[in-house]
Design a protein around this nucleic acid. Sequence first.
DNA 1: TTATGTGGAATGAATGTTCGTTCCGTTACT
DNA 2: AGTAACGGAACGAACATTCATTCCACATAA
Lengths: 195, 195
Amino acid sequence: MSTTRLEERMADKRERVLAAALRLFAEKGFDGTAVPEIAREAGVGAGTIYRYFESKEVLVNALYQREKLAAMDEAMKGFPTDVPARAQFAHLFRKAIDYALKHKDSVCFMEHHHHGGYLDAESLALEARTMELAESFLRVSAERQVTKDVEPQVIISVVWGGVARLLRQVWDGHLELTEEILAQLENVLWQAVRV
Amino acid sequence: MSTTRLEERMADKRERVLAAALRLFAEKGFDGTAVPEIAREAGVGAGTIYRYFESKEVLVNALYQREKLAAMDEAMKGFPTDVPARAQFAHLFRKAIDYALKHKDSVCFMEHHHHGGYLDAESLALEARTMELAESFLRVSAERQVTKDVEPQVIISVVWGGVARLLRQVWDGHLELTEEILAQLENVLWQAVRV
DNA sequence: TTATGTGGAATGAATGTTCGTTCCGTTACT
DNA sequence: AGTAACGGAACGAACATTCATTCCACATAA
């Protein structure tokens, strides 16, 4: 075996710090969360965090990139190419909802922190790369006349903006998420997207 | 006259504090903004703020309610009742965009602070009242078969979520706002809303 | 097997800084 | 002159970060 017991223990500790930071940043934001609070939530000493991340800002960027990449991975996985466009849309929509419900803290964190002034160049570049990917996909769809021939950013804003806002209503306790509401949202968004 | 020169000066000072807080909260969030920083931006002493607001939390709630009420006022003003539904939608859409562009800080602030744990009961009640108003309007529209017969919250999430997200792309410098893009967004959203 | 030495991980009290808030001498108005 | 607003120094609390120390897994020796 290539990983010693010590290396495992350290990897686990690093993971606990990231998990604790994700939970707290999602709930209270970056500036609203104290480093010693993250340490307490992770069950480690305050100083230990600095063995793994040289500053709070490095920590939040590591977390942002990790969560963003995980979400992108999940979005790509198992995309059906040989079904009608409507079914592809349904697949992506349901996948996104499933992921958001299963990774609420991750989605809250990434939504909250979209505006933060503490993201470094690498995090911002990753963000840009995600957008470019979605844009080029939509450009192809528009050429095939399955989605409206408008700027991809318009479609992306409406679809993910609508999903994110509805989820926020749910998570704030202002709306109960039923299958009927999901079906309504999926249909409304498809009407927005289709030619 | 009922207002003395002193009262005018004080009202102006209060206003300067609110304006400075709005600019800074919009840019850096509540926890990311220090009270002495607000004082400097407003051109007043740090202590002076506490003559007008008993705490930072009281200040942010006063600001939130002021901006929310101003936006609601603007939304209601001059709504055309005797034109087709499509024209009513266009009116609301253009009004919202105009308002957002003219009051960027206000919109950023309210978007940022939707999740904050520092809003008091009154602020949250105002938020709820806004939603109820929009919901009842959409219920009537659905009955008249001009908008889709789905939960109003679904429509609201898609429309305002889409607008807010596109504006963020613009304000983050990732998109230039042209009349063409606005027309595309208006059309896409109308397709989502209409029966 | 047991005892012991050792390097690096882990710690949490200590540090300097910055925060929200208060206090008080000064200024400005009546 | 008297009253109230004002600015900004001052305060304790809380912050991000550091560092002297402790702890522990493992290697070596008996």
